[in-house]
């Protein structure tokens, strides 16, 4: 598949006769990376699919107002992050498992997930990540799995680079402690 530049995608979208084609190309281009980013936050495939669909729907509605003050990918990740976080909040408000610590529920979910094929170390890594506070979890996933630069993360999460570095540092410490505790 052809990889389009942000400029080209936006140009197609802004041309009324190619609006759908342009957006379809955008979905094609970003669907895989956004899916995996969301999946690591919400864990369950069906939930990730819902959140991803909502993300693209929001993008469709908002793209005409996109001012290009950031890269298109940054803007899309920002929508995806907001959607994933509000999805988890809604779950909490709906009395999801009625627990104070929904992260522990997510962590337990990984183990039983039909779409999880990792080995024991990967399972423990995911469990450790899912037991992190939400912000640290997102920062860790962005830095470790997505290999994002702090500057881009800063633009997505609207948080200073210093604070992000601190979050990542705390996250790594907690994951390390988790592995020391279970002695793998």
């Amino acid at each position: 598949m052809n990889e389009y530049s942000d400029e080209r995608l936006l140009e197609m979208f802004r041309d009324e006769s190619r609006k759908y084609k342009g957006f379809s190309a955008l979905v094609e281009q970003y669907k895989v990376r956004l899916y995996w980013f969301i999946r690591k936050i919400v864990v369950v495939h069906e939930d990730a699919d819902d959140v991803l669909q909502n993300t693209f729907e929001k993008a469709w509605k908002g793209l005409s107002g996109f001012r290009q003050e950031s890269a298109l990918s940054t803007w899309l990740y920002r929508i995806a992050t907001n959607e994933a976080v509000s999805f988890l909040n809604q779950k909490r408000h709906k009395g999801f498992e009625l627990l104070d610590n929904p992260e522990s529920v997510l962590s337990a979910t990984v183990q039983d997930d039909a779409y999880f094929s990792g080995d024991q170390i990967q399972l423990q890594l995911q469990k450790a990540i899912l037991n992190l506070p939400e912000k640290q979890r997102i920062v860790f996933n962005m830095k470790y799995f997505e290999e994002m630069k702090y500057e881009e993360m800063s633009a997505i999460l609207n948080t200073s680079v210093g604070a992000l570095k601190a979050s990542y540092h705390h996250a790594v410490n907690k994951i390390k402690e988790h592995f020391e505790r279970i002695s793998i």
Binding site: S24, K31, Y35, D49, D113, Y115, S117, G118, L125
Partner: peptide, 29 residues
Amino acid sequence: FINSLPKGNPFTTPEGYFDNLTNSVMSRI
């Protein structure tokens, strides 16, 4: 420590999920 951890993706999706995703999103829109 962090370099010793596996970086691979342990999650999977239903077969053909990504193949149908663009159509699914566009239909919804």
